[in-house]
Simulated assay, not measured.
Amino acid sequence: MLKHRNILLFCISAIITLFALSFYFDVKWWSFLLVFAFWLAMTIFGSSNIKTGYFVKSYCDNPAEKELKIAISFDDGPHPMTEKVLDLLGQYNAKATFFCIGSQIEKHPDIFKRILDEGHVVGNHSYSHSNRFGFFSTQKVVDELKQTNAIIERLSSKKALYFRPPFGVTNPNIARAVAKTNHHVIGWNNRSLDTAIEDEAKILKRVKNRMAPGGIILLHDTSLKTVNVLEQLLLFLQSKKYQCVTIDALLNIPAYEN
């Protein structure tokens, strides 16, 4: 797996080598530009694709899982629509993991408590879910994680160890922050794109086509569209004999501090 530090060292070495060669050969200026462009492209790709683990180790599936087990995860709640999601999960005896925004927990504490009361797992999804989260300083990220963890702990007496970065964006500041807060970064390997695609059938098809034992599905418990997709998905999983488990059960990594 490519890592930020390795790519950075490679690019620095390439620049130094090109500079040294320029004393003996006609090294074109664009050679240096190509190295920089490669570094920039890898940085952008690594930042936006949590599955690469480019900046920080992220858990996106369990490839060793041979049984028909899968984890459904929901981002951006709790939300009034979460109630319908919970109704469906209960109807199909499925467990899920909810990555909750701190400010949303404050708005809907009763729904948050219902998530836990019904045997699901919760994780930290920042306090603000700001569009600028990827530009936050290390300390600002730490503050957001601690603020949301404090809300979770106040309402549940549980200290959450899971963190899913907003938009799945990672960078060196986020990596340093989770090292300080001791969170496990949880990603996914089956992204529904339910916030971008309007056609429910297309969302369902996309998820089904990427289905495999040990996978983690990303949905959002914030729209009726996703609720409708979830019902069809749970029917499909039931027909294929899949068991929907929480992420801690799938990865064998504790969701809360003992």
Rank of each mutant, 00 (worst) to 15 (best):
A255I: 04
A175D: 00
L18D: 02
H125F: 11
D61G: 04
N252Q: 15
Y162G: 06
D26W: 09
A94Q: 06
G119M: 12
G90P: 00
T195D: 10
N190S: 15
A177I: 05
K28F: 06
I174V: 07
C11F: 03
K159E: 12
Q232V: 06
K95L: 12
I151Y: 08
N189H: 09
P63H: 07
G123D: 06
T138H: 05
F135A: 07
I44M: 09
F45W: 14
S156T: 08
V207E: 13
G102L: 04
A212L: 02
I151T: 12
N49Y: 11
F10S: 11
E106M: 14
C60D: 03
P172K: 03
V35F: 05
A212T: 03
Q147S: 02
A212I: 00
F25E: 09
P254F: 04
A150M: 00
I247F: 06
V185K: 03
N258D: 03
G119P: 13
A64M: 14
S22G: 05
S31R: 01
D143F: 07
Q91V: 12
K158F: 01
L145F: 05
N189D: 15
C60V: 08
T97V: 04
V185N: 03
K51V: 10
G168V: 11
Y54R: 12
T226D: 02
L234P: 07
W29E: 15
P165A: 03
D75V: 02
Y127I: 11
G119W: 12
P213N: 05
S58F: 04
Y59M: 08
F38I: 14
S130M: 05
T52N: 12
H125A: 09
F32G: 13
G46H: 14
N171C: 02
I152Y: 03
